[in-house]
Amino acid sequence: VTTYKLVINGKTLKGETTTKAVDAETAEKAFKQYANDNGVDGVWTYDDATKTFTVTEMV
């Protein structure tokens, strides 16, 4: 189990959260659900070296 981080660069919501998951795919599903629940829709990137997902909403 690995800890993954999500950085949110939203128009109205900004911040970070973490989740523990067995792999990046599982973490991504959890983060996308979290973003969807919070009304964040944007471009996703993932950095495997730092285990960090970033979602950026276009203005």
Rank of each mutant, 00 (worst) to 15 (best):
F53R: 00
F31C: 02
V40N: 02
Y4N: 00
T52H: 03
E25L: 12
I8Y: 12
D41T: 11
F53V: 01
E16G: 03
V7N: 05
V43C: 05
A21H: 04
T52C: 04
T3F: 07
G39Y: 13
V22W: 08
L6R: 00
Y34R: 02
V1L: 09
A27M: 01
D41G: 09
L13Q: 05
N38T: 12
G42N: 01
T56D: 08
G10Y: 15
V1S: 11
N38A: 07
K51M: 08
A21E: 06
I8M: 12
V55L: 08
G15D: 14
F53N: 00
A27E: 00
G42L: 02
V7M: 08
T26Y: 14
W44K: 00
D47V: 10
K29L: 13
D23Q: 05
G39V: 04
A49T: 08
V40T: 03
E28Y: 14
Q33C: 05
T52I: 14
T52D: 01
V43T: 12
A30Y: 10
A24P: 08
N38M: 15
D37R: 07
V22E: 06
G10I: 15
T54N: 04
V55R: 00
T17P: 03
A30K: 07
A21F: 06
Y46C: 01
G15F: 15
V59Y: 11
L13D: 08
D41Y: 09
K14S: 11
D47L: 05
V22D: 15
T54F: 04
Y34L: 09
T45I: 12
T52F: 02
G39C: 05
K51H: 10
V59T: 09
V40L: 09
T2F: 07
D48W: 07
G15V: 15
T3R: 05
T2W: 10
D48F: 09
K32A: 08
T26K: 08
D37V: 12
Q33E: 10
T12P: 07
L6K: 00
G39I: 04
T19I: 09
Y46P: 00
V7G: 02
V43P: 04
V55S: 02
E57N: 03
K5E: 03
M58N: 13
D47R: 03
A35Y: 03
T3A: 11
Y4I: 01
V43M: 11
D48H: 12
T18Q: 07
Y4F: 12
A30N: 13
Y4P: 00
N36K: 14
T50Q: 14
V59K: 05
Y34A: 03
K14H: 15
G15I: 15
T52E: 06
L13N: 13
A35F: 03
N38D: 03
T17G: 07
A30I: 15
K29T: 12
Y46K: 01
T2N: 07
